[in-house]
C-alpha cells in the first residue's frame, strides 16, 4: 500500500546494517567503514529523487556507498593498512586447529583480493544479490561480475594453499574478523 505521501527515505534506516557490513568488507576497518556509511547516507538523503520507487533500495544505497569508497576512502584504507603486518603477526599466535585453516589465513587472503573481487564476492556470495543486481550496483556487465566472483574464489583458495579436500572450518570469532580485521588499528 504505497501512496504518494510515503517518503522512501523512511526506509533507509532498515538498510544501515547491510551498508555497514558492505562498507566493512571494502575498507576492512570499522571506523573507516562507518565514516563511509555516514557520507553515503548524507548523499542518499540529498539525491533521493534519483531513487525509483519500487526498485531495490539496498542496491541503490550500495551503489552510492561504493562510489563513496572509490572516490574518497580507498586512499585512506591503504594508509590504514600499513598497520596490517603488525596485526597479522599477532593473529599468527592463535592456536592451530589440526592444521586447519586459520583466521589469519582467510583474513589475510580476503584482504589481498582486489577491491573489485572483494566487492563482487561479498555482493553475490554474502549479501544475496543476484549477478544482475550486483552488476547494476557496480555499473558493469553481468559477465564481468561473474568472472570477478570466480577469480575471487579461485584466488582465495590459492592464497590459503587450500587443498580441495580440506575442510574450511572457522569458528565464530574467526568469521567476525573477515569483514573487519583491524578494528583496534583505527
Amino acid at each position: 500500500m504505497r501512496d504518494k505521501n510515503v517518503d522512501p527515505r523512511d526506509e533507509i534506516v532498515e538498510h544501515i546494517g547491510a551498508m555497514r557490513a558492505f562498507a566493512m568488507s571494502l575498507t576492512r576497518n570499522s571506523a573507516l567503514a562507518d565514516d563511509m556509511v555516514q557520507d553515503a547516507l548524507v548523499k542518499a538523503w540529498s539525491k533521493i529523487h534519483t531513487f525509483e520507487a519500487g526498485t531495490n533500495m539496498r542496491a541503490w544505497l550500495f551503489t552510492i556507498l561504493r562510489n563513496t569508497y572509490y572516490s574518497h576512502h580507498r586512499k585512506a584504507r591503504r594508509e590504514v593498512q600499513d598497520s596490517e603486518g603488525e596485526l597479522s603477526g599477532a593473529l599468527a599466535q592463535k592456536p592451530d586447529h589440526d592444521g586447519r585453516l586459520q583466521m589469519r589465513d582467510f583474513n589475510t587472503a580476503f584482504g589481498q583480493l582486489t577491491d573489485e573481487q572483494r566487492e563482487a564476492l561479498i555482493l553475490v556470495g554474502a549479501s544475496g544479490f543476484s549477478y544482475e543486481e550486483a552488476a547494476e550496483a557496480c555499473g558493469v556487465a553481468v559477465g564481468t561480475i561473474k568472472s570477478r566472483v570466480n577469480r575471487a574464489r579461485a584466488r582465495l583458495a590459492q592464497l590459503m594453499h587450500l587443498e580441495e579436500d580440506e575442510k574450511l572450518e572457522l569458528t565464530d570469532v574467526v568469521t567476525s574478523g573477515i569483514v573487519s580485521d583491524n578494528q583496534s588499528a583505527a
Binding site: I16, Q38, I122, G125, S127, L156, L168
Partner: peptide, 28 residues
Amino acid sequence: LQSEIDDNLRKAFDEVVKQDVPDRFLNL
C-alpha cells in the same frame, strides 16, 4: 570449497548486519 567460502563470508556479513544501528546514524 566455493560454497564453504561463501558460507563463511555470509556468516561474517550477517553478523554485522544484525548489530544494532549505532546512534550516530540514527542521529544523522
